[in-house]
Write a protein that binds this DNA or RNA. Structure first.
Lengths: 333, 333
DNA sequence: GTTAGCACTCGGTACAATCGACTGCTACCC
DNA sequence: GGGTAGCAGTCGATTGTACCGAGTGCTAAC
């Protein structure tokens, strides 16, 4: 553990570096509020902090830069939980006041909001629909030989799958199949049972079986949705174009992004810094995440992604407030 | 119009520049196949091409670089319509052979395919559903006070909207409303009429009216979908990070992207180069687009976006082949 | 009309000198 | 003993200079 003075110096270095992106010298730190010693003393302490792995010197005769360990200490020992700035708080309030429409639409907009608030790239993962129950199944003919199986879940999600129409399936059979499916599958979870009791009518049963088949393989087809916003801000954060390219490459792989966020949450973290993310291309990035609830249950995750020298207090505050408000909005609306 | 020799020289400059991204000198051009004159002659011709605005000199003692006008001439006078490379053609065939699932899913995958084929950023705009007719409307209760209105269209698209449930709307009323809505709206276009003949039952009519209201304002809520893929490749194309940032900023505004593509198509173009795109931040970009059909009607648009020095023959071939195959797949499947 | 040859231009690179923002260390002070 | 002032030293960044080479325009010869 660091004594109070070392902590204050480390804090000053991190804050200054976040602000300027330049190595921080002892002079600047000595001038910082909360540090009331001379630059010489600061130098001694910084040498000690470097020995302990909190700081790093890009080269002799340069200032210090925080290491991952340094950032980690910084976020673990933030003074106040940090409220959102006046303007930003207002923006969030306005947003949720006029938020409306379907869940998907709102999540997409939320991603935009987060990105605007933090000036970082944002990620919103849609709810894991494990908790939702099936409310209705409808088979609607499209052409003479194909139909659409539409399943409505209690959380407002809709799954759809095209099927080939078995021969001899008239409108009345479609209606019968729809009614039968809704009656027998209604209330079940996303994982639909593999078979349903027969209706007695041969052609209807063929329809029902086809519908059940596509419904039961739903999870493969339709993974959780990810809304990524503000990728352009990634290009501002780094001046090495190669880094930008790598990070964008990661962001394009939705599956990777989802498991990244889930992984961080599962480890009980709110912040993952550099290699803590477990992904090599994100060595120079950090993510700040928070889960959001739907009807009291953990549903999805929101987060922001930026350079390790992001403004952590601001990002934490934004993510926390938005996840909170989003939870409220989703369960009440 | 350019004589044959000037055209050959211009072509050589463009091809070399696309390949190397370096200003092209007279020596390289003289050595190019199809140009059988000395470098001195090439110099004279290049000076003339520069005077006519086809080429540009970054500085006095540098080689030449094509201008927008130069690229334009190049694409307008391509020798062969250019088939796709062996490997790529195979990739496209494989893709459409195993393509399956819903339209949305296929379009998203198509975007990935295009991006892989061309090594550029790709854009796929989903079909304008003007031609689709309404097949079924279903009102499904979610909670005690809210329900979901699910509309199924003949092209397999599904619209959904949550509504507040009027008091006293039991399951049987929901069913009645669903049946009534399907009966009276079935066959209509995306633009739903503002009112429907009453059923005679007060509570059911309230439900029907609420459903019709959200359905008729559908276009505002749910604009055409855009699938953008391979944004990471944008970061490879430019070394000025500022350019990357601006272009990514554009790509995040779905509405802008949609109207950009539509605008190009409407002008009867397949390629828009630099300022031809009409967007200042895309001054260093070019786009190659093609419409695709659904049941014989123009439906949506696909395209690629890259630097003005992209490989036009390859991009044109890829976009053409993919749009063609996609049209086939959509109308047959 | 084409081409060889030549003088000239100018960006890029390599190298040296200088500058300045740092550091570590030592000596001194309370 | 802990804190501090002062000083010598380090090293990236900047500036200046010389040079190289790719490429040009022009002229004279074929």
């Amino acid at each position: 553990m660091l004594d109070e003075r070392k902590a204050a110096i480390l804090r000053a270095v991190v804050e200054e570096y976040i602000d300027t992106a330049q190595p921080v010298g002892s002079g600047h730190v000595a001038r910082a509020p909360g540090v009331d010693v001379s630059s010489a003393t600061v130098r001694n302490e910084m040498a000690s902090l470097e020995a302990d792995g909190y700081l790093r010197q890009p080269h002799t005769s340069a200032g210090r830069v925080p290491t991952e360990k340094g950032y980690r200490f910084f976020v673990d020992h933030l003074r106040a939980p940090a409220r959102l700035q006046g303007r930003s708080a207002e923006e969030v309030r306005d947003f949720f006041a006029r938020a409306h429409g379907e869940v998907e639409h709102m999540l997409a907009e939320t991603s935009r909001l987060l990105s605007n608030l933090t000036n970082l790239t944002s990620v919103v993962v849609s709810p894991l629909p494990a908790e939702a129950t099936l409310r209705s199944v409808q088979v609607v003919s499209l052409t003479a030989t194909s139909a659409l199986v539409v399943a409505v879940f209690s959380d407002g999600m809709v799954d759809k799958h095209t099927i080939e129409l078995p021969a001899g399936a008239g409108e009345e059979r479609l209606a019968a199949a729809s009614a039968h499916l809704t009656a027998h599958l209604g209330g079940s979870r996303r994982q639909v049972p593999g078979a349903v009791t027969p209706t007695g009518d041969r052609a209807t049963d063929a329809l029902v079986a086809a519908a059940v088949e596509v419904l039961s393989m739903a999870p493969v087809e339709d993974p959780e949705h990810v809304y990524v916003g503000g990728t352009a801000r990634m290009a501002q954060a780094f001046d090495a174009i190669e880094t930008v390219r790598e990070v964008l490459g990661i962001l394009e792989q939705q599956f990777v992004v989802v498991s990244l966020l889930r992984d961080v949450i599962d480890r009980g973290l709110h912040v993952a810094i550099g290699t803590e993310t477990g992904m090599a291309p994100l060595a120079e990035c950090a993510i700040v995440v928070a889960p959001y609830d739907l009807e009291g249950e953990r549903a999805g995750t929101i987060g922001v992604l930026g350079p390790t020298r992001m403004n952590y207090p601001q990002a934490l505050a934004a993510v926390a407030v938005v996840s909170h408000r989003l939870s409220d909005r989703l369960t009440e609306g």
